[in-house]
Nucleic acid binder design. Structure first.
Lengths: 354, 354
DNA sequence: TTTAGCACTCCTTTTCCCAGAGTGCTAAAC
DNA sequence: GTTTAGCACTCTGGGAAAAGGAGTGCTAAA
């Protein structure tokens, strides 16, 4: 309904003018004047005409004036229209696609480290701060336990999770357990503590307490506690941010206080960054952001798949006048690349379908 | 020899004046005038006398004047004397010691995560950016391998390193290997590939190539390659930085360009941060830093022990006028706390002495 | 409906000035 | 000989005033 209204609301010329204003403002970070617009539109109309149009656009809330006799700059509403309708999908040059492809060709060792790298790459590419996260699609459970004896006082607990990640840790045993008792414990673990939720695990721990001896039970508790730790951690999302200092290069963040606010938000609030769950890509403009620190900034965020079980988000933070077309194009290309990469590399091999 | 010279070079009163200037400047970030000094010294001498002394101190290079008729501010040489001789070891209040103790009481899960937390804690405590790293004292070798069958196409490789860390990964096998062949492979791994350097490992891989069948050899290579990866990574130091945005609160970094330079240095150059190997604590003042980005900043860095096999560094970056006494006191307390913490908690249990 | 012209507004930059803080020197006092 | 008071001089920081400029809105004519 809003869209229909808009199409009537704005003549083709007004839309064109709006587009010019926004793209100019994106480039220069300065309010745009009628004369500049007239020039940019090929001189087919005079600056006076433009002024009339600008007046209308301002009245309708697409543009703003910092003060009476300044040029115009886009309002959030203006940016929104631009992003929805005016912006041309930017095509990436071959060179650039190649560049993105290459920056993904990094050694990917562990997911955490890799996400950090991805964040830095995106930030470098966009020249804005970026953030990355990965989250499990569903709940994670234990798939398999294993215990390896080291000596009488310690053993290694190995845990494979339902998303095929393997974690292990050395455990010190409070009470000595002879190595030949371990296999029994392992089968107990695998029969009772796999494929169940965290809560369920602690309940089952209680229920088996009388079936085995105290030393074994102590060790069992340790292993289960470790497993619970791993699963809990696996269910959480960690967020990596990169390139926050790029903000300082932008005129709108010359003011140290503003920059500080946003930067410490990026550094600390690993929680409140925009995380749209549904869409493939989302653009949040200024006040559309919930978070207060972001109210003068915009966020472009895309999602990508990590195999079949996980989904990640990768976002870019910039000033409201950020070059939405360019950022969106690159980010979506990057996200696609990530999805493909995780398909191919099988960092997390797909789970057997049951 | 320089020290001897210095003791003669400066009268007690000059030293006192120097101290007042530095501590004033630390507080205010403004050049200090003769009158203020006279007042702070209890009015026992007049400002004129102070001026004479200041003149001398400036000539000797301990103080600087931004321009002819401004107050004095300390030069790096002045700070150096202050740190070496004038600064009083600051005693921490009980409350503060307690605060430090508490900020170490965090869940420490994995070392990486923990170091990140420690960095943030230090940065919050000092109100300056901080960085943390951990490095193995000696080379790391493999201590023990294990292979756990998953199915015909994959198995889990577990590796325990000489510093008692356990790492594991799921391996996809190119060629099928029946599970009952694994034990033999494990004993081969443990007899030939433990306790040796990375280079040695690849040599031995060659030498055993004709002793076993091709499928087994392929798997063996995979495991050894994984082991080499782990060891290599374990030998590297990663550096965590925290609180970089605090720079923006300091008057000397109001200039966005300066702040940007230092901040991106902190974010990127995980390599070039000051890393004194020997001392317990080190203070590097302005130009004493090798790195260019740090030439207008100072660094206080302390080392701590992680069990018996590792050693870490924790540093604070600030303006040259940073409050050396306060930072040094807190940092050293923090480093001690870390050392004790790692002793107690046995995150990395001490290695058996052979 | 478009355009030229013009008066007007408000920001930005520059210039100017001045108060204030601080120095260095000199000459007297201790 | 050291310390101090006094004084002339220097330099900065900040604010006011002025100049400049970009841009608008309106009016009247094309």
């Amino acid at each position: 309904m809003m869209n229909g209204a808009r199409l009537v609301e704005l003549t083709e010329r007004k839309r064109q003018i709006l587009k010019v204003v926004i793209e100019d403002y994106i480039r220069t970070a300065e309010p745009v004047g009628s004369k500049a617009i007239a020039a940019e539109m090929g001189g087919s109309v005079s600056s006076a005409t433009i002024r009339n149009e600008l007046s209308d656009l301002t009245e309708q809330g697409y543009l703003e004036q910092p003060h009476t006799s300044a040029g115009r700059m886009p309002s959030p509403k203006g940016y929104r229209l631009y992003v929805n309708e005016l912006m041309e999908e930017q095509r990436l040059s071959l060179a650039e696609t190649e560049h993105i492809r290459q920056s993904l060709q990094l050694k990917m060792e562990e997911l955490d480290r890799f996400l950090g790298q991805a964040g830095r790459a995106v930030s470098a590419l966009m020249r804005y701060p970026a953030y990355v996260s990965a989250a499990r699609k569903g709940g994670v459970t234990a798939r398999r336990f294993e215990l390896l004896p080291v000596d009488e006082n310690s053993c290694i607990a190995v845990l494979m999770t339902s998303d095929s990640r393997v974690k292990s840790q050395l455990l010190r045993m409070q009470l000595k357990v002879p190595p030949d008792q371990l296999p029994g414990l392992v089968s107990l673990l695998n029969s009772h503590f796999t494929g169940v939720s965290l809560q369920e695990m602690s309940q089952r721990l209680m229920s088996v307490s009388d079936q085995i001896g105290p030393q074994l039970f102590l060790l069992l508790s340790q292993v289960v506690a470790y497993g619970a730790d791993v699963l809990e951690e696996a269910g959480q999302r960690e967020i990596f941010t990169a390139g926050a200092s790029r903000l300082l290069k932008l005129p709108e963040f010359r003011d140290a206080d503003k920059a500080h606010e946003l930067m410490s938000f990026l550094a600390d609030s690993k929680e409140n960054l925009p995380m749209p769950e549904n869409r493939q890509m989302e653009i949040l403009i200024g006040p559309e952001n919930v978070s207060d620190a972001l109210k003068d900034a915009s966020v472009v965020v895309a999602s990508y798949d990590i195999g079949e079980n996980m989904r990640g988000l990768i976002g870019v933070v910039g000033p409201t006048r950020m070059d939405y077309a360019a950022v969106a194009a690159r980010l979506s290309s990057f996200a696609e690349g990530l999805t493909r990469l995780f398909e191919k590399k099988e960092l997390l091999p797909k789970e057997e379908r049951e």
